[in-house]
Protein backbone atom coordinates (compact mmCIF):
# COMPACT_ATOMS: atom_id res chain seq x y z
CA UNK A 1 0.00 0.00 0.00
CA UNK A 2 1.31 3.43 -0.93
CA UNK A 3 0.67 6.70 0.88
CA UNK A 4 -1.74 7.66 -1.91
CA UNK A 5 -3.87 4.60 -1.26
CA UNK A 6 -3.79 5.30 2.48
CA UNK A 7 -5.08 8.77 1.62
CA UNK A 8 -7.94 7.29 -0.40
CA UNK A 9 -8.87 4.98 2.48
CA UNK A 10 -8.90 7.96 4.84
CA UNK A 11 -11.03 9.97 2.43
CA UNK A 12 -13.54 7.10 2.32
CA UNK A 13 -13.55 7.02 6.13
CA UNK A 14 -14.17 10.76 6.16
CA UNK A 15 -17.15 10.29 3.82
CA UNK A 16 -18.48 7.33 5.80
CA UNK A 17 -18.31 9.08 9.17
CA UNK A 18 -20.59 11.86 7.94
CA UNK A 19 -23.00 9.77 5.85
CA UNK A 20 -23.34 6.16 7.02
CA UNK A 21 -22.44 6.42 10.69
CA UNK A 22 -25.28 8.82 11.64
CA UNK A 23 -27.76 6.16 10.54
CA UNK A 24 -26.24 3.56 12.84
CA UNK A 25 -26.26 5.72 15.96
CA UNK A 26 -29.24 4.73 18.12
CA UNK A 27 -31.87 7.45 18.53
CA UNK A 28 -31.25 7.67 22.27
CA UNK A 29 -27.58 8.53 21.69
CA UNK A 30 -28.03 11.08 18.91
CA UNK A 31 -26.05 14.20 19.76
CA UNK A 32 -23.79 12.27 22.11
CA UNK A 33 -21.71 10.10 19.76
CA UNK A 34 -19.46 11.76 17.21
CA UNK A 35 -17.24 9.62 14.96
CA UNK A 36 -13.70 10.85 14.23
CA UNK A 37 -12.39 7.88 12.26
CA UNK A 38 -9.95 9.82 10.09
CA UNK A 39 -8.40 11.14 13.29
CA UNK A 40 -7.82 7.55 14.49
CA UNK A 41 -5.94 6.89 11.26
CA UNK A 42 -3.85 10.02 11.76
CA UNK A 43 -2.88 8.61 15.16
CA UNK A 44 -1.99 5.25 13.63
CA UNK A 45 0.19 7.11 11.12
CA UNK A 46 1.87 8.88 14.04
CA UNK A 47 2.48 5.67 15.99
CA UNK A 48 3.53 3.32 13.19
CA UNK A 49 4.77 5.84 10.64
CA UNK A 50 6.62 9.11 10.99
CA UNK A 51 5.62 12.31 12.72
CA UNK A 52 5.94 14.35 9.54
CA UNK A 53 3.52 12.15 7.61
CA UNK A 54 1.15 12.24 10.59
CA UNK A 55 1.34 16.03 10.61
CA UNK A 56 0.70 16.14 6.87
CA UNK A 57 -2.28 13.77 7.02
CA UNK A 58 -3.68 15.56 10.07
CA UNK A 59 -3.48 18.96 8.38
CA UNK A 60 -4.95 17.63 5.12
CA UNK A 61 -7.95 15.79 6.57
CA UNK A 62 -8.52 18.39 9.26
CA UNK A 63 -8.69 21.01 6.53
CA UNK A 64 -11.11 18.83 4.57
CA UNK A 65 -13.40 18.54 7.61
CA UNK A 66 -13.16 22.30 8.15
CA UNK A 67 -13.91 23.29 4.57
CA UNK A 68 -16.65 20.77 3.87
CA UNK A 69 -18.60 21.53 7.03
CA UNK A 70 -17.75 25.23 7.18
CA UNK A 71 -20.31 26.79 9.42
CA UNK A 72 -18.69 29.64 11.26
CA UNK A 73 -14.97 29.06 11.66
CA UNK A 74 -12.19 27.46 9.64
CA UNK A 75 -8.94 25.90 10.73
CA UNK A 76 -9.90 24.35 14.05
CA UNK A 77 -9.75 20.69 12.97
CA UNK A 78 -6.69 21.39 10.83
CA UNK A 79 -4.85 22.71 13.85
CA UNK A 80 -6.07 20.10 16.35
CA UNK A 81 -5.46 17.07 14.11
CA UNK A 82 -2.08 18.32 12.89
CA UNK A 83 -0.83 19.23 16.36
CA UNK A 84 -1.96 16.00 18.04
CA UNK A 85 -0.63 13.90 15.16
CA UNK A 86 2.76 15.58 15.33
CA UNK A 87 3.13 15.50 19.11
CA UNK A 88 2.07 11.84 19.30
CA UNK A 89 4.59 11.01 16.60
CA UNK A 90 7.29 12.97 18.42
CA UNK A 91 6.71 11.14 21.70
CA UNK A 92 6.28 7.62 20.36
CA UNK A 93 8.26 7.53 17.14
CA UNK A 94 11.29 5.63 18.38
CA UNK A 95 9.39 3.29 20.67
CA UNK A 96 7.83 -0.02 19.90
CA UNK A 97 4.09 0.48 20.29
CA UNK A 98 2.12 -2.58 21.39
CA UNK A 99 -1.60 -2.92 20.82
CA UNK A 100 -2.53 -2.01 24.38
CA UNK A 101 -0.35 1.08 24.45
CA UNK A 102 -1.70 2.07 21.01
CA UNK A 103 -5.28 1.89 22.28
CA UNK A 104 -4.35 3.78 25.43
CA UNK A 105 -2.69 6.49 23.32
CA UNK A 106 -5.74 6.72 21.07
CA UNK A 107 -8.04 7.11 24.08
CA UNK A 108 -5.91 9.92 25.53
CA UNK A 109 -5.51 11.66 22.17
CA UNK A 110 -9.26 11.50 21.46
CA UNK A 111 -9.98 13.16 24.79
CA UNK A 112 -7.38 15.85 24.08
CA UNK A 113 -8.86 16.38 20.60
CA UNK A 114 -12.40 16.76 21.98
CA UNK A 115 -11.15 19.13 24.66
CA UNK A 116 -9.30 21.32 22.12
CA UNK A 117 -12.48 21.52 20.01
CA UNK A 118 -14.56 22.34 23.07
CA UNK A 119 -12.06 24.94 24.28
CA UNK A 120 -11.93 26.82 20.97
CA UNK A 121 -15.72 26.91 20.60
CA UNK A 122 -15.99 27.99 24.24
CA UNK A 123 -13.43 30.78 23.82
CA UNK A 124 -15.30 32.14 20.79
CA UNK A 125 -18.66 31.87 22.59
CA UNK A 126 -20.21 29.31 20.28
CA UNK A 127 -21.21 27.19 23.24
CA UNK A 128 -21.98 27.85 26.88
CA UNK A 129 -21.73 24.30 28.16
CA UNK A 130 -19.48 23.67 31.14
CA UNK A 131 -16.52 21.36 30.58
CA UNK A 132 -17.88 18.81 33.06
CA UNK A 133 -21.18 18.65 31.19
CA UNK A 134 -19.43 18.30 27.82
CA UNK A 135 -17.21 15.48 29.12
CA UNK A 136 -20.17 13.47 30.37
CA UNK A 137 -22.43 14.46 27.47
CA UNK A 138 -20.34 13.46 24.47
CA UNK A 139 -16.58 13.35 25.03
CA UNK A 140 -16.39 10.04 26.94
CA UNK A 141 -18.95 8.29 24.74
CA UNK A 142 -17.26 9.49 21.55
CA UNK A 143 -13.90 8.34 22.87
CA UNK A 144 -15.33 4.86 23.43
CA UNK A 145 -16.69 4.86 19.88
CA UNK A 146 -13.25 5.80 18.56
CA UNK A 147 -11.64 3.09 20.71
CA UNK A 148 -14.04 0.48 19.35
CA UNK A 149 -13.23 1.56 15.80
CA UNK A 150 -9.49 1.60 16.51
CA UNK A 151 -9.68 -1.94 17.89
CA UNK A 152 -11.67 -3.15 14.90
CA UNK A 153 -9.21 -1.80 12.33
CA UNK A 154 -6.02 -2.29 14.35
CA UNK A 155 -4.54 -5.11 12.28
CA UNK A 156 -5.21 -3.76 8.77
CA UNK A 157 -4.47 -0.16 9.80
CA UNK A 158 -1.09 -1.10 11.24
CA UNK A 159 -0.17 -3.10 8.16
CA UNK A 160 -1.28 -0.35 5.79
CA UNK A 161 0.51 2.39 7.68
CA UNK A 162 3.71 0.37 7.98
CA UNK A 163 3.75 -0.40 4.27
CA UNK A 164 2.70 3.14 3.23
CA UNK A 165 5.08 5.05 5.48
CA UNK A 166 8.50 3.37 5.71
CA UNK A 167 10.33 4.26 8.91
CA UNK A 168 14.06 4.74 8.47
CA UNK A 169 15.13 5.14 12.07
CA UNK A 170 14.99 1.52 13.42
CA UNK A 171 16.88 0.13 10.39
CA UNK A 172 19.79 2.44 11.16
CA UNK A 173 19.86 1.21 14.71
CA UNK A 174 20.00 -2.40 13.55
CA UNK A 175 23.00 -1.66 11.41
Amino acid sequence: MTIGRLGVVMFLLFVIESTLVPWFIPTSLVGRLYPHFTFVFVLYAAMYGTRHKALMLGLLYGLLQDVVFYGSLLGLHTFAMGLIGYVTGLLLEKRKVTMMSALFTIAVCCMVYEIIIYAVYRVFWFTRESLAYAVVDHMLLSTFLQLGFALAVYVPARRWVQSAIPVRQPEKEEE
Binding site: V15, E17, S18, T19, V21, P22, G31, Y34, P35, H36, Q65, V68, F69, Y70, G71, S72, L73, H77, E114, I117, Y118, Y121, F126, T127, A134, H138, S142
Partner: peptide
Amino acid sequence: VVSVSSDPYNPTIK
Protein backbone atom coordinates in the same frame (compact mmCIF):
# COMPACT_ATOMS: atom_id res chain seq x y z
CA VAL B 1 -29.50 15.93 2.63
CA VAL B 2 -26.10 14.52 1.65
CA SER B 3 -24.27 14.43 4.98
CA VAL B 4 -24.18 15.68 8.54
CA SER B 5 -21.12 17.03 10.33
CA SER B 6 -19.42 15.01 13.05
CA ASP B 7 -18.38 18.05 15.05
CA PRO B 8 -20.37 18.42 18.29
CA TYR B 9 -20.47 22.22 18.18
CA ASN B 10 -20.89 22.70 14.45
CA PRO B 11 -23.79 20.44 13.45
CA THR B 12 -23.80 21.61 9.82
CA ILE B 13 -25.97 19.70 7.35
CA LYS B 14 -25.07 19.59 3.66
